[in-house]
Amino acid sequence: MKKIVIHSGYIKLDSFLKLADCVSTGGMAKALLQEGLVAVNGEREERRGRKLYPGDKVEVQGEGVFEVEGETSEA
């Protein structure tokens, strides 16, 4: 499982797919989702705007499993 660090409280699924290098454009993300190739926390997801939070797991057929990780601040 690959961990993808986000720098805010959440990230939208289409942006996450780009950050994880699964797609290079929003249009490609839309097509991937419409084909049913993406699952969030074990459930198929088709909404590009689905908000992902630290701890969520995203599985992309042909690409692998990714976990959303929040940015840690060291004081």
Rank of each mutant, 00 (worst) to 15 (best):
M1T: 01
K2M: 14
K2W: 04
K3I: 02
K3P: 12
H7R: 15
S8L: 03
G9Y: 12
G9Q: 14
Y10I: 10
I11F: 10
K12Q: 13
K12T: 07
L13V: 13
L13H: 14
L13G: 13
D14Y: 05
S15W: 03
F16C: 01
F16M: 06
L17N: 05
L17Y: 08
K18N: 01
K18P: 03
L19Q: 07
L19V: 11
D21Q: 00
C22P: 10
C22D: 01
C22K: 03
G27K: 02
G27Q: 00
G27S: 12
M28R: 08
M28L: 08
A29Y: 09
K30I: 02
K30S: 11
K30T: 05
K30E: 10
A31T: 10
L32E: 09
L33N: 02
L37E: 04
L37M: 08
V38L: 04
V38I: 10
V38E: 05
V38R: 01
V38Q: 02
N41F: 00
N41T: 04
G42K: 09
E43V: 09
E43T: 12
R44Q: 06
E45F: 02
E45L: 08
R47Q: 05
G49F: 09
G49Q: 12
R50G: 03
R50C: 09
R50Y: 07
L52N: 09
P54M: 05
P54F: 04
D56E: 12
K57N: 14
K57Q: 15
V58S: 02
V58K: 00
E59P: 09
E59S: 14
V60R: 04
Q61T: 12
G62H: 03
G62D: 06
E63F: 15
E63H: 15
E63N: 07
G64S: 09
G64F: 05
V65W: 08
V65C: 11
E67V: 15
E67G: 11
V68I: 11
E69S: 15
E69F: 10
G70Q: 06
G70T: 05
G70I: 02
E71M: 13
T72A: 15
S73D: 12
S73E: 14
E74W: 09
E74I: 11
A75D: 15
A75V: 13
A75M: 14
A75Y: 13
A75P: 14
